[in-house]
Amino acid sequence: MTTVSLRSLRKTYGTVVAVEGVDLEIAEGELIVLLGPSGCGKSTTLRMVAGLETTTSGQLMIGERDVTTLEPKDRDIAMVFQNYALYPHKTIRANMSFGLKMRGMSAADTAREVDRAAEMLDIAHLLDRKPAQLSGGQMQRVALGRALVRDPAIFLLDEPLSNLDAKLRARMREEIALLQRRIGKAMLYVTHDQTEAMTLADRIVIMRDGHVQQIGSPLEVYDRPANAFVAGFVGSPEMNLVPARIESGRIILDDGVATPAPGNAPTGPVLVGIRPEALVPSHQGMPFVVQGVEQLGSQTLFIGLLGPHRVRVLASRINDVAPGEAIHVAVEPEAVHLFDNASGARL
C-alpha cells in the first residue's frame, strides 16, 4: 500500500530550478534513499515532503490526504535533522516529549511513549541529561527517538549520519536498518554517501541537478546504471569511465588496447564503464601500467594507465606488484557498461 506519493514535485527559487518534476511512490514499510551530490535537490525534495519548503508545483499525498500545502505538524511526519536539532536547554526526556506535548497527549501517555522509544534505542539512562552532555552517537539516537515517539506515517531523515565518525556511522547505519525493519514504517532518507544508500535502501532515488536519474533497488542501480552519472556515482571505488570506440565486436580504448565488446554493442564512439573489480589482473588482456598501489587488507587497489586513460583496478590481495610495473588486465564482455558518448545514457 502506498504511504506517500510525490507527483511531479517541483521547486524553483526565482529562475533557479532546484527540483524538477519528481515522481515517487513510497510503499508502507519501504526505505527509500535519496542519493546525489551536494546541490542535486535531494534535501529540497525531503524538505518539501516535510513541509519546511513550499512546493512550486506538483502534489504530495500522504495516505489518502493531499498535504501539499499543509504545515509540517499536520502532515503526520517525523524528521531527523543533519545536526540533530535537539533543543539545547531541554533535557532529553523533554526533547522527546515536546512533540507529543504540543499535540496535547496526556503526561502519563507521553512518559510511556518516551520510555518505550528510549528503551528501544538504549537511551533510557540519558533521559535526564541535556544534549550538551551527550556524545555525537548518543545525540543521534535521541534525534531518532524524538522522531520515533511520534509514530508518524513516514520518517524523514536528512543526512542523519554525516556528523559521525566512520566507525560510528557504520554502526548507526546498521541500527537504523534494524530499527526500520522493526517498526515497519516508511522512511525517506537523504544522503550523499553511496555506501549508506546501498546498505540501507529498499530503493535508491539518484538525483542530479534537480532531476531524478534513476530509481531502483541498490543492485539494480549498481548492475544496470541508467546513465554514466549513476554509473560513476554508485559504487566504491567508482566505476572507470573512458571514451572508446567499438569496431567489429571489439572495444578499442587506444592503439593496441582493446577488449571484446558485449554482444549488443553498437558500432562507433561510446563511453565505456568498467567497475574496478571487473578488471582482473591476468597474463593476457590489456596492458596496464601500475602507477599507485593501495593495500586495503583483503584487497589491493591499483591505480594506473590503460592506454592513455587513468583507471582503477580492484583485485584480491596481490603483494608483489609495485608502481612502475606493467601487467595485464582483462574484463568479461558482460561486465562492460556502454553509454552514449554525448548524452551519457545507457546503450
Binding site: 519546511l52 536539532a85 533543543y87
Partner: peptide, 20 residues
C-alpha cells in the same frame, strides 16, 4: 533547524518563541 524541528513537532510561532 531548531525552529524547523519545533515546526515539525507542532509548535506555532508563540510556542516557538517561548520554547526556543
Amino acid at each position: 533547524q531548531l525552529y524547523e524541528a519545533a515546526r515539525v513537532d507542532g509548535a506555532g510561532p508563540i510556542r516557538r518563541f517561548f520554547h526556543i
